[in-house]
């Protein structure tokens, strides 16, 4: 039952985060010069804080609609999730430095390894990287040349 307990604590925890966000927003609105600018965010932030408090009250009296069980554990791989998210963040940050093509190739390879569950047969070993290079290269050409998007060139090369 440890999982259930964790989820129980999560409710006030998430509520606290929303209250904190709301408080930060209200604090930020005090720096605006124009009344038109702060009416909306301040109202919404106040409503959000009130809702968060309501959520905690609901949790305290133990009345809560049955949440969908997310089922985080079991056969699911947390490291792979983190690796995917990390690769994408890294790609976003490296893009201005390495240029789009290089970043794209590296990110593609990293994410491919993350998503690989099948054994590496010689066929896959050759076809997958080639397919990756063609996909990345093809999209690069499509965007950079046909659609004339100025993709980042990179400052390291």
């Amino acid at each position: 039952m440890s999982e259930k307990r964790i989820r129980d604590i999560s409710t006030p925890f998430m509520a606290a985060i929303f209250v904190a966000i709301g408080a930060v927003v209200i604090w930020d609105t005090t720096t605006y010069t124009d009344a038109d600018s702060y009416v909306f965010p301040r109202t919404i932030a106040t409503v959000m804080i009130a809702l968060a408090i309501l959520l905690v009250l609901q949790w305290l009296i133990g009345w809560s609609p049955s949440a969908k069980d997310p089922g985080i554990v079991g056969a699911q791989s947390v490291p792979r999730r983190l690796a995917l998210f990390g690769s994408m963040i890294a790609a976003a940050l490296l893009m201005p430095l390495l240029g789009f093509l290089g970043t794209g190739m590296i990110a593609f390879a990293a994410i491919m390894l993350t998503a690989m569950y099948d054994p590496w047969t010689p066929y896959r070993f050759i076809v997958y990287p080639v397919a990756g290079a063609v996909i990345v290269g093809g999209f690069y050409l499509l965007f950079a040349r046909v659609l004339q998007v100025p993709l980042p060139e990179g400052t390291w090369f």
Binding site: A131, G137, G138, L141, L142, R145, V146
Partner: peptide
């Protein structure tokens, strides 16, 4: 894998076509 090869071939063709367009 047949479908995969076909998919790859289509992408390659698309890439080449765009390549010509820029030459």
């Amino acid at each position: 894998m047949n479908r995969l090869t076909r998919f790859g071939a289509a992408l390659a063709a698309a890439a080449m076509a765009t390549g010509f367009a820029i030459a």
